[in-house]
């Protein structure tokens, strides 16, 4: 889905969103008449230090002053892979963006990621995966790691990897696999306009508890994580010394 189609379907009541070199920032009118902060990445743009600081600033400027939800629209590349970005400490910039989104969410500004294209690796962690709820538009194509690269590192032919991917959701690219692990809260349908689906989500937002582990278990794509985390958490809580 193109950004223009996405915005038209999501915000029929209007929006004021500016796109600059793949980075988008602005606001939009929601179905209930309130306004949302909208930010994100388009055109498969990679996220480097310059993009991350602009996006984080939009969240920071809004964190105390604004109200309403924060929508993060994602069609990104990976993190920008360059000497300059790493020299400047890209990990801090990506985390800064994720921290801003998470803190805003904890402070009562519900964050919703809308994955409408590609995303991968550090860019995915800093944006879509740092929101309370991540929804995906049909056709979204997230890939933590693409099969050709995986083939290079594992020294296994792509055909072998494709065969293995049929039996497990745990490593292979694609929306279905990622949804099964619990990363994606819901995949929106294409029969109802997106603004109505957004309105329904906003009307029934889950609380801030991270339930991605439980979702992964329920959907069978990440069967161990929730229980192991719960066992460790329990051990940490129950054995506290005085």
């Amino acid at each position: 889905m193109t950004l223009a189609d996405l915005l038209a379907s999501l915000f029929p009541s209007g929006h004021d969103i500016h796109v600059d070199k793949g980075v988008l920032v602005g606001s939009a009118r929601l179905p209930d008449g309130s306004d949302a902060l909208v930010l994100g990445v388009t055109d498969h743009a990679p996220i480097g230090v310059d993009e991350a600081i602009v996006l984080a600033k939009a969240v920071m400027d809004s964190i105390d002053r604004g109200t309403g939800p924060i929508l993060v629209l994602v069609d990104s590349g990976s993190q920008r892979m360059s000497k300059r970005d790493e020299l400047l400490g890209l990990n801090e910039y990506l985390s800064h963006l994720a921290k801003a989104l998470i803190l805003a969410d904890l402070k009562g500004r519900p964050t919703i990621g809308i994955l409408y294209g590609h995303s991968a690796a550090g860019a995915f962690l800093a944006t879509a995966l740092a929101t309370r709820v991540l929804v995906a538009i049909p056709g979204a194509e997230p890939a933590v790691m693409d099969l050709p690269s995986m083939s290079r590192v594992t020294k296994l032919p792509i055909e072998v990897l494709e065969e293995k991917a049929k039996s497990t959701a745990v490593f292979a690219p694609g929306l279905d696999n990622l949804a099964k692990t619990g990363a994606v809260y819901a995949v929106w349908g294409d029969r109802t306009s997106l603004d109505r689906q957004l309105g329904a989500l906003l009307a029934a937002m889950p609380d801030t508890v991270d339930r991605r582990g439980a979702l992964g278990k329920e959907r069978g794509g990440r069967t161990l994580a929730a229980d192991i985390a719960a066992r460790v958490r329990h051990a940490g809580l129950s054995g506290a010394r005085d």
Binding site: A169, R222, A225
Partner: peptide, 11 residues
């Protein structure tokens, strides 16, 4: 285990 590992990092 790329999907599970990535999501664990997010969590």
């Amino acid at each position: 285990e790329a999907n599970a590992g990535e999501l664990a990092i997010a969590e």
